[in-house]
Amino acid sequence: MTITKADLVRQIYHSHPEMTKMRSTRAVELFLSLAKNSLISGEHLLLSGFGKFKIKDKRLRRGRNPQTGEELMLDARRVVTFKPSGKLRSKVN
Rank of each mutant, 00 (worst) to 15 (best):
I55N: 03
L30E: 14
R10K: 14
M22D: 12
S15H: 15
L46E: 13
R26M: 10
D7G: 07
S90L: 11
A6N: 10
L32K: 06
V80S: 05
R77V: 08
S85N: 05
S33M: 09
L60V: 12
S48G: 04
T4V: 03
S33E: 15
K58N: 13
T2C: 03
K52A: 05
M22W: 00
K36D: 15
A27F: 01
R10M: 12
R26T: 10
K91S: 07
E70I: 08
S33G: 10
P66K: 02
M73Q: 12
N65M: 09
K54T: 15
H14V: 11
T81D: 08
E43C: 03
T20L: 08
S41L: 06
R89K: 15
G42R: 00
D75C: 00
D57N: 07
L45Y: 01
L32C: 04
L74T: 07
M73C: 01
I12K: 01
K83Y: 13
G42Y: 02
R23F: 13
E43V: 09
S24V: 05
L30Q: 11
G69V: 00
E43F: 05
A6R: 03
V80T: 03
V80P: 05
P17I: 10
G63E: 07
F31R: 02
D57K: 06
G86P: 05
L39A: 01
A35K: 07
R26W: 09
E18Q: 09
S85Y: 01
S38E: 15
R62K: 12
R89G: 11
R59Q: 14
